[in-house]
């Protein structure tokens, strides 16, 4: 077991008296990609600021490669891409990268390779003001790949990108993780990061609600699969009496069932050719899982 690059233990953060994050704990190992999910204002960016050493902790500890946030060693280990970044419009992409390699004390010769990796080689000597949003974000990513980042901190890196740019973006991130970088990225929704991160942490109203692989979270949530039955004329009432579920319109019936009972139920309905014309099965989506964990405590409190 390798030592985690980033570890948070019961970290609490506050703006004055307002608690922004309460007792958050998690770790990210080298080569691992962890997605931090949460609604707007859930505390994701605040957590990032604390990891960068921009704000004091109200409680708990953060260690970056074993060092306190904000120390030289910690800042050398972290490469950061904020949610909104605007580079000076009159500088070229190459000049922007020169600036950041200079600040990190890294050799300039890697700049050409960085531009190549994010697909900006052709635009390297054009002013950033002429870049599209996707290109600016890719330049931001190139900046975050300077040196051999031990921890990549990406704050909603793909918000506002089209699906193709987004796909490429995650490709570059996967490549960095393959070289051994730990990646912590934040995002709004689960759908986007499916198959693109190793684990997921869900943050809601400043609290960590769940952490684990997507499969594990889906199992833990144990959400019902929904069977949508289309009945023949006049058969809907009988079916509802027998199988339960909710009636939709004249001939539609929605039945929720657990993962274990699913196969049996489908088999029984499949034999009902006399009364059923169609059967649709919708397993719980990632969005459902996310909502489930985000609202867990809100429901528990009520």
């Amino acid at each position: 077991m390798t030592d985690p690059v980033l570890s948070l233990s019961s970290v609490s953060l506050a703006y004055g008296r307002t608690r922004a994050v309460e007792a958050a704990s998690f770790e990210v190992a080298p080569g691992e990609r962890l997605a931090l999910l949460g609604h707007n204002g859930a505390g994701k960016s605040t957590l990032f600021k604390a990891i960068l050493g921009f704000m004091p902790l109200a409680g708990g500890t953060i260690r970056v490669s074993g060092h306190a946030p904000g120390t030289d060693a910690a800042r050398r280990a972290i490469n950061y891409l904020p949610e909104v970044v605007t580079f000076p419009r009159s500088l070229t992409g190459r000049e922007v990268l020169r600036y950041f390699t200079g600040l990190r004390g890294e050799p300039r010769r890697q700049i050409a390779d960085l531009l190549e990796r994010v697909g900006l080689s052709d635009a390297a000597d054009r002013a950033v003001g002429t870049y599209s949003k996707g290109m600016r974000q890719r330049l931001g990513l190139a900046q975050a790949l300077i040196g051999a980042p031990r921890l990549l901190l990406l704050d909603e890196p793909t918000s506002g990108l089209d699906p193709v740019s987004r796909h490429d973006f995650y490709g570059v991130i996967a490549e960095a993780a393959g070289r051994g970088s730990a990646v912590l990225l934040s995002s709004h929704g689960l759908d986007e990061i499916e198959h693109r991160t190793d684990r997921v942490a869900i943050l809601s109203q400043g609290r960590m609600r769940a952490i684990g692989t997507l499969d594990a979270l889906a199992r833990e949530a144990n959400l019902p699969t929904r069977l949508r039955v289309t009945a023949r004329e006049g058969a809907a009432d009988g079916l509802q009496a027998e199988y339960g579920g909710r009636r939709f319109n004249g001939c539609r019936l929605d039945i929720d069932c657990t993962a274990d009972a699913k196969l049996d139920l489908v088999a029984r309905l499949g034999a009902e050719a006399g009364r059923v014309t169609d059967l649709q099965m919708s397993p719980p989506t990632l969005g459902d899982v996310y909502l489930h964990f985000s609202n867990l405590d809100a429901e528990a409190l009520q």
């Binding site: 970044v85 004390g105 901190l153």
Partner: peptide, 13 residues
């Protein structure tokens, strides 16, 4: 305002 300073401050400068 543009978020550029955070990037600078995140480096060892």
């Amino acid at each position: 305002e543009r978020g550029a300073l955070g990037l600078t401050f995140a480096t060892p400068v």
